[in-house]
């Protein structure tokens, strides 16, 4: 089901990543203000955008699950959120490295963009413990879906609030009128974003293919066990019933 899309996606990701890498280090000019350290931008920002979009996609898929009651949508939502958490961790670590190089600090608590992303990340860090604390699979999927929808709404709200707040030190590169950078840098950024989105799609498909195969295998195992039980019961019925053992009469008091 998912395996067929995997090979073209993986090839596309490898090609796009190679092109992005070449553009970042051999084509895009050095930033006049930050110099070579600005190369982290082509990794950090696409990762943050794809992670946030992954959280949103997880919410949309969760809504599809609640609407259709099809467990496939819940699994898709779970994998999207799970991958976004991993990318989110990457965003926080690469952001810290960039902050240390640019601002001299690993973390700046009065910077809304950083703190808001940390809050979104911590919110979603609760998703997995919440999900796996519920044993009943139906309830687990329903509760996780409700959480995913609320989390997606919170992510949008958080993003809009930060954009509306006055930025202190975090640079605002993108505005409604477009990218605030030269064309060659913008092209490099777009290719990097495309490569990151393709990587997300590939890993999402890979994990779904693995989960789907595991689920089918479990079903085959259950079916085989049931068949074995039926065959055993049939054999027992076909055998003549042994005569009940003769019990000694109860002793009278």
């Amino acid at each position: 089901m998912y395996g067929r899309a995997l090979a073209p996606l993986a090839l596309g990701t490898a090609a796009a990543s190679a092109v992005a890498f070449g553009l970042v280090f051999f084509y895009a000019p050095l930033d006049a203000d930050q110099g070579f350290i600005q190369k982290i931008f082509y990794l950090h920002v696409p990762m943050a955008i794809v992670a946030l979009l992954g959280f949103l996609a997880g919410g949309v898929m969760a809504a599809m699950h609640l609407r259709t009651r099809d467990r496939v949508w819940d699994m898709r939502s779970y994998v999207a959120i799970h991958l976004s958490i991993i990318l989110g961790l990457g965003v926080l670590v690469t952001g810290s490295i960039w902050a240390k190089a640019s601002w001299g600090h690993w973390w700046v608590w009065d910077e809304p963009m950083l703190v808001s992303f940390l809050i979104v990340f911590l919110l979603y860090a609760v998703y997995q413990p919440l999900r796996f604390s519920i044993d009943d699979p139906g309830r687990q999927a329903r509760y996780a879906s409700v959480f995913a929808i609320a989390g997606a709404a919170f992510t949008v709200l958080n993003f809009v609030a930060v954009r509306m707040a006055a930025a202190y030190t975090h640079p605002r590169v993108f505005s409604q009128t477009g990218g605030n950078m030269p064309a060659d840098m913008f092209l490099t950024f777009l290719v990097s974003l495309g490569a990151m989105a393709l990587l997300f799609a590939t890993l999402w498909t890979l994990e779904l293919a693995s989960k789907n195969a595991a689920e089918r295998l479990r079903r085959v195992r259950r079916r085989l066990e049931r068949e074995a039980e039926h065959a055993e019961a049939g054999e027992r019925l076909a055998r003549p019933e042994p005569a009940p053992p003769i019990r000694p009469a109860a002793a009278s008091r």
């Binding site: 110099g35 070579f36 350290i37 982290i40 990794l43 990457g90 490295i97 960039w98 240390k100 190089a101």
Partner: peptide, 18 residues
């Protein structure tokens, strides 16, 4: 802006983490 040698270490660290 950091000199290339120090900036290079930070950039490499970020890409290696990813």
């Amino acid at each position: 802006a950091l000199p290339l040698e120090s900036a290079g270490a930070y950039v490499a660290a970020a890409y290696i983490v990813f």
